[in-house]
Design a protein around this nucleic acid. Structure first.
Length: 471
RNA sequence: GCCGCGGUAGUAUAGCCUGGCCUAGUAUGCGGGCCUGUCAAGCCCGUGACCCGGGUUCAAAUCCCGGCCGCGGCGCCA
């Protein structure tokens, strides 16, 4: 049995009986059975000219003439032209000429070859049933550029009827799948940590407050402390793909208040170099898998997408970065974090000098890094940490963590945090904690930079920003 | 949070600076008509809008003030 038909029969077998709604709609009386449905792709790959098939999907386009109606029907596998002719099947033609774009229909028809039709085949309708008629559309589904992003997001489910916008999420899903595959094959254990927390994890980014019965609580801004728990507990290597929340009122094209964080943490490392090796390998695997699987979609819809990734990702210290930026005529503050403009500029410089769209910037100043970061033994003002920039935008942060109890406690206090709030966390380091490190990767940012999207909201199914909470 | 730009039919825009000729233009959508090979179908007819409140003026889409909403830059971050 061919895989397309098999999938559809699997669905059908779950529908043991018709629902009262179907009876009311008269769907039980129609001679088209959705259980006999084949995917459109099947008609082009395996369909026999002259045979009858049932297809169903959305009306992608409509061209209504006098005695003939052309319908471009779309399902998840592709598109095919349906022809309804008055002198072939009058009732099918009558239904067809009353259709609207994006309505859902089922068609029984004969597969015929046609020089004029796309792909050389079309379906000559014998019977056509309107399963759900669509009202006039509030946004332009055919050409997404004709509607501003804010309105598209208000009607996200219609926006995704556009294959370009849907492709973003197919690619994102493939990246996440590839990441999991990579982690599992490298002996990492997937963990699922709580997103409701009693204390802010890092003290840096703003957190969302929630009410947890009678206690104050927060939405987790990062699984940082819990993935360290995983390592110390004895998993040694853990990862998590989950949401992270940031209550920063950003108005930019690269921030979300809720995003997907791809986190990893590993024990028994010699240095943060080990973590960078892992991150480099992982990112390459994720991105390469996705862009090769969706090569044709990317060529068709994303002119600014990257073609491939560099073989070797350069690693430069932030002090070298300051120098490069100064040489390029930019004013930089030594010992400070890189500004947005500086990161962008650095991305350009590295791409020109090293031919790489990716760059690790290492040894960030202690004053801009969180308390758990391990400092450079010989130069304590600098840290064993890194950021990964992709086309001038930070997509990952990581480093080696401080695992020595006394040092960690001192660093916590130095950052002005109250050790009482971190008691459970500090205690972990009293009962055997291996040297370890890890990183966090922003999934939407990877997608955005890989595809060259102008706004990160495009890479999030239902984005949350300071204003947007619906849908 | 600070700063800047904007809000005109379902959608996208013109008009605003320099108030009147705006009965608000165009494209697309939508409704109707003609059409049996279209493929962004075509042709004809029709439909539909100045964010809200206040002010200035003989006169406001246009100028001023307030509000709401949207977009972007920065800081910060993934």
């Amino acid at each position: 049995m061919n895989p397309f038909v098999a999938t559809e029969r699997l669905y059908a077998s779950k529908l043991k009986s018709y629902s009262p709604v179907m009876v009311k709609l008269g769907l039980c009386n129609m001679s088209i059975k959705l259980s006999k449905r084949v995917l459109i792709k099947y008609l082009f790959e395996k369909g026999k000219i002259g045979n009858e098939y049932v297809v169903a999907g959305w009306v992608d386009a409509l061209r209504i003439h006098g005695g003939v109606v052309f319908i471009i029907l779309r399902d998840r596998s592709g598109k095919i032209q349906i022809v309804a002719k008055k002198n072939v099947a009058k009732s099918a033609w009558e239904s067809a000429k009353e259709l609207s774009v994006e309505s859902v229909i089922a068609v029984r028809g004969e597969l015929v070859s046609s020089k004029a039709a796309l792909g050389g085949r079309e379906l000559l309708a014998k019977e056509l049933v309107v399963l759900s008629r669509a009202d006039p559309l509030p946004i332009d589904v055919k050409d997404y550029e004709k509607t501003i992003l804010a309105k598209r997001l208000d009607w996200r489910y219609l926006d995704l009827r556009n294959p370009r916008n849907l492709a973003i999420f197919l690619i994102e899903a493939e990246m996440a799948r590839a990441a999991r595959e990579w982690f599992y094959s490298h002996d990492f254990v997937e963990i699922f940590t709580s997103k409701i927390v009693g204390a802010a994890t890092e003290g840096g980014a703003e957190v969302f407050s929630i009410v947890y019965f009678d206690k104050p609580a927060f939405l987790a801004q990062s699984p940082q402390l819990y993935k360290q728990l995983g390592v110390i507990a004895g998993f040694e290597r853990v990862f998590e793909i989950g949401p992270a929340f940031r209550a920063e009122p950003h108005h930019t094209t690269r921030h979300l208040t809720e995003y997907t964080s791809l986190d990893l943490e590993m024990g028994f490392i010699d240095s943060y170099e080990d973590v960078m090796n892992i991150v480099e390998d992982l990112i390459k695997y994720m991105v390469t898998k996705a862009i090769s699987k969706y090569k044709s979609e990317i060529e068709e819809y994303f002119p600014n997408a990257i073609a491939d990734l560099p073989k070797k990702v350069p690693r430069i210290t932030i002090r070298e970065a300051y120098k490069l930026l100064e040489q390029a005529g930019m004013k930089v503050e030594w010992g400070e974090d890189l500004s947005t403009e500086a990161e962008r500029k650095l991305g350009e410089i590295i791409e020109k000098e090293y031919g790489s769209t990716l760059v690790f910037v290492i040894e960030y100043p202690w004053r801009v890094r969180p308390f758990y970061t391990m400092r450079k033994p010989d130069e304590p003002e600098w840290t064993l940490s890194f950021d990964l920039l992709f086309r001038g935008l930070e997509i990952a942060t990581g480093g080696q963590r401080e695992h020595r109890y006394e040092v960690l406690k001192r660093q916590l206090e130095e950052k002005g945090l109250n050790p009482k709030n971190f008691e459970w966390y500090l205690n972990m380091f009293r009962y055997g904690a291996p040297p370890h490190g890890g990183a966090g990767i922003g999934l939407e940012r990877v997608v955005m930079q890989a595809l060259g999207l102008p706004n990160i909201r495009e890479a999030r199914l239902l984005p949350r920003d300071p204003e947007r909470l619906v849908p």
